[in-house]
Design a protein around this nucleic acid. Structure first.
Length: 538
RNA sequence: GCGGGCGUAGUUCAGUGGUAGAACAUCAGCUUCCCAAGCUGAGUGUCGAGGGUUCGAUUCCCUUCGCCCGCUCCA
């Protein structure tokens, strides 16, 4: 399989992906799409939108679906009322305080590091536990006896406190804190803020009361408009609302080409249904979304569906599955997330009604501050749904398939990139670089080529090109030998070539040539468009 | 954010303390009746950016930006 540098150099050489602001040395975590990349990306969005939204038939239950359902699309703003992110939980979650260990270079979440004070041989040290330790009591005991050089369980070692969070310890006292993997105390930095949301200011004044955030996901825009859509669109549950749009996250370490970017595009559906049917809908969406990648030509061997186990799940969720791809730049056996399909229960709608819910409470309760008030106040609006046929009112459960456009594009390119062998005109096998993209996704569907640049062939080929140009993405190429033109088409994934040759002059047929198996067949000049459409399935 | 490596033409790379080359790609022409053929010709780089040392820096030093790898992070 291709390496990351082979992928990035092909993407640059052929105009799929460039580094953003490359002229000025680039900017970490941002990417531009070139002419072919833009077409490919549009085709991915279009395939998703058609398959999920515009080609959806609300009168028939799709294969495997529990029932027929409605599906509409919306497009919401990137910047929203900041309260949205407080209620959604992103504000708390994305403003993590971290501490770094200067000795081991390890970083810990400030609120996750726990430990207890230990006293021996005249020294008092706060011994922290590794957050991943199976048994923090055991971990801390062993660390303490090693530090003080006393046997475990020795009466010399006294515990001066119970377990407590590092955040309860003053920063001045960090000199007496032993980090989980450090040899000596006092190696932890002061807690530092890592704000993962992009902050901006609305209006001309740069003051905190005008602060706002670029959305870190498109989903919240859908939740906020659930009631608007219901009230305006004559749709009933079960209902999917879809959106494609940009999102922004201040990733600490953008890496791996476009896989982890700070500006990225999402294709998300929030699917609203009755709580009693939500598990069946969850399974339906999980399986359907996985199949979508297969239908667009991703090799099943490179994809896996990873169901989160019970410990990873919030208790309110009946399931979350990641659709993952074996990106060639990841270590062998590792997969990277393309899409997450999550059963979110009524967490989001209820949070926007009542105030931010505590995801760890069971049953779900509004998170309160010390005064007993909601930590983050909800809208107070009623987002319950009334089924007018059964007269039942309920808060819908939500299934959320959330896909990354840029990640899908990268996976499609990685999966399609191949080097195989094809004979040259002397019959010897030569390396051929070919992009086996699905015809639906290919940026160029067909290349029209005169076999040689004489005998009127270019004129006929131009006529064919001109007839196709309003209907399919077509390229005309008369430069260089025919074999070289085929290879150029192969390298950018053009699935079909139409060649005007000597026989065309006699009987008005042209040669169609298939990118994948090099097969050829003849088609009448007047039937070119129909044949292209048949082949690419559009 | 930490540690390591790297940055020369569109791409892959060579090279030198005296301002740069190859292959492929690109463009033009000739030739060419089916899979990267041949011939002729052309263009391309402020050697990532800024500063320093030096008579002189792409080359040595510092800073910075970017890329890759490992940690960390990844709702």
């Amino acid at each position: 399989m291709a390496t990351l540098s082979e992928i990035t150099s092909l993407c640059k050489r052929r105009g799929f992906i460039f580094q953003s602001s490359e002229l000025y040395g680039g900017i970490n975590g941002f990417w531009d799409y070139g002419p072919l990349g833009t077409e490919l990306k549009r085709n991915i969005r279009q395939a998703w939108w058609r398959d999920m939204v515009s080609w959806h038939n609300p009168l028939l239950a799709p294969a495997g679906a529990p029932a027929a359902f409605a599906m509409v699309g919306i497009e919401t703003s990137v910047i929203m009322n900041p309260q949205v992110w407080k209620v959604s939980g992103h504000y708390d979650l994305f403003q993590d305080l971290m501490v770094d260990c200067r000795e081991t270079k390890l970083r810990y979440r400030y609120d996750q590091l726990r430990g207890r004070w230990a006293e021996a041989r005249g020294r008092k040290i706060f011994i922290t536990a590794d957050p991943d330790a199976e048994d923090e009591f055991d971990f801390v005991s062993r660390r303490a006896s090693k530090l003080f050089k006393v046997p475990t369980g020795s009466p010399e070692l006294k515990w001066a406190s119970d377990f407590m969070s590092l955040s309860q310890i003053a920063v001045e006292d960090f000199v007496g804190v032993l980090a989980p993997q450090a040899q000596a105390p006092g190696t932890l930095s002061e807690p530092r803020e890592f704000n993962l949301m992009f902050k901006t200011y609305v209006g001309a004044l740069t003051s905190e009361e005008h602060a706002a955030y670029l959305r870190p996901e498109t989903a919240q825009g859908i939740f906020l408009n659930f009631k608007n859509v219901i009230d305006s669109s004559r749709v009933r549950l079960p209902l999917g609302i879809a959106q494609i749009g940009k999102s922004f996250r201040n990733e600490i370490t953008p890496r791996q080409f476009t896989f982890r970017s700070r500006e990225f595009e999402q294709m998300e559906i929030e699917f609203f249904c009755h709580p009693s049917t939500s598990e069946a809908w969850y399974r339906y969406w999980r399986d359907r979304r996985l199949r979508w990648y297969f239908d667009l030509g991703i090799k099943p061997a490179n994809v896996r569906l990873r169901e989160h186990d019970k410990r990873e799940l919030s208790h309110y969720s009946r399931g979350t599955a990641d659709i993952e791809y074996a990106f060639p730049f990841l270590p062998a056996g590792d997969f990277g997330e393309l899409e997450g399909v999550a059963h979110r229960g009524d967490f989001d709608l209820r949070s926007h009604m009542e105030g931010k819910l505590d995801p760890n409470s069971n049953p779900l309760l509004v998170e309160r501050d010390s005064a007993g008030q909601p930590r983050w106040r909800g809208s107070g609006k009623n987002l319950a749904y009334r089924d007018e046929r059964t007269n039942e009112t309920y808060i819908p459960h939500v299934i959320e398939p959330s896909a990354g456009v840029d990640r899908a594009l990268l996976a499609f390119i990685c999966d399609a990139m191949q080097t195989d062998e094809a004979p040259d005109d002397t019959g010897t096998l030569r390396q051929r670089s070919v992009l086996r993209l699905s015809p639906r996704l290919a940026p160029v569907k067909v290349a029209v080529l005169p076999l040689v640049r004489k005998d009127g062939m270019p004129e006929i080929a131009r006529d064919i090109h001109n007839a196709l140009v309003r209907h399919v993405a077509v390229q005309y190429d008369e430069k260089d030998a025919i074999g070289r033109r085929y290879r150029r088409a192969d390298e950018i994934g053009t699935p079909l070539c139409i060649t005007v040759d000597g026989q065309t002059l006699r009987d008005n047929t042209v040669t169609f040539r298939n990118r994948d198996d090099l097969s050829q067949w003849r088609v009448h000049v007047n039937d070119c468009e129909a044949e292209v459409r048949r082949f690419i399935g559009a």
